[in-house]
Design a protein around this nucleic acid. Structure first.
Lengths: 104, 104
DNA sequence: TCTTGACACATAGTGATCCTAGGTATAGCG
DNA sequence: CGCTATACCTAGGATCACTATGTGTCAAGA
């Protein structure tokens, strides 16, 4: 997977992993890898800054927790984040249609 | 359409517009707009540098021509460009599946 | 015990690429 | 003659995913 392929779509993917419930950053990475069957195997340095940005934009909120001696920052979708995800999903669908219309 | 959405996929789109035959840059822009029903309404400053890069990479070849007093640089897919397009198409399909698996 | 790997977080700097903004030039129309 | 569409070009800016690097805990194995 080339670096640029994902660009502009990573936010939606990360928001989507949190749709079913809160999770910490490392778990988000694992979820992305599993759900995509290995296609999205992202480095921490890719995902953490996005989580920070999404929180700064008010789409996520976070809280520290501790599990088995390890500190975790647990993220959850805000109301705005959930709405934003829905919008991004719609845009994604439009984008796919447009690309398919050209590639087909 | 946000700028980043297209990133990493523009090459494939432009190559695809040349699959049915050679065309000049301005026509590529028009074709993209029409086939995508307006979704891809790209500025010349977006498309021309890509054409130059694709030619530098050996995926396109070009030749000057003159039509009704206007000079045009006509691009055509090279053999490698055609193979590359096919590969990018396959990668696009994989990418869509992976994203859908996460978003769904 | 010591080392390795998995877990878990963080940030600075790099590179690719799409867009903005500006430029040149011809043809056709009102 | 000015305006619009056609047709090309490039420099610079902004965004964003990635690389590289750092900190620290815990469990398993040599």
């Amino acid at each position: 997977m080339k670096a640029e392929t994902l660009k502009g779509h990573l936010d939606a993917l990360i928001l989507a992993t949190l749709r079913e419930g809160p999770a910490h950053g490392y778990a988000v990475i694992e979820t992305l890898k599993q759900r995509s069957e290995g296609a999205f195997d992202l480095a921490e340095g890719t995902v953490y800054p996005v989580l920070h940005r999404l929180e700064a934009d008010g789409l996520l909120s976070s809280a520290w927790s501790v599990a088995s001696g390890r500190r975790r920052r647990v993220y959850r979708l805000t109301r705005r984040g959930r709405a934003d995800l829905a919008e991004r999903h719609t845009e994604w669908t439009s984008f796919v249609h447009a690309v398919e219309a050209v590639l087909a």
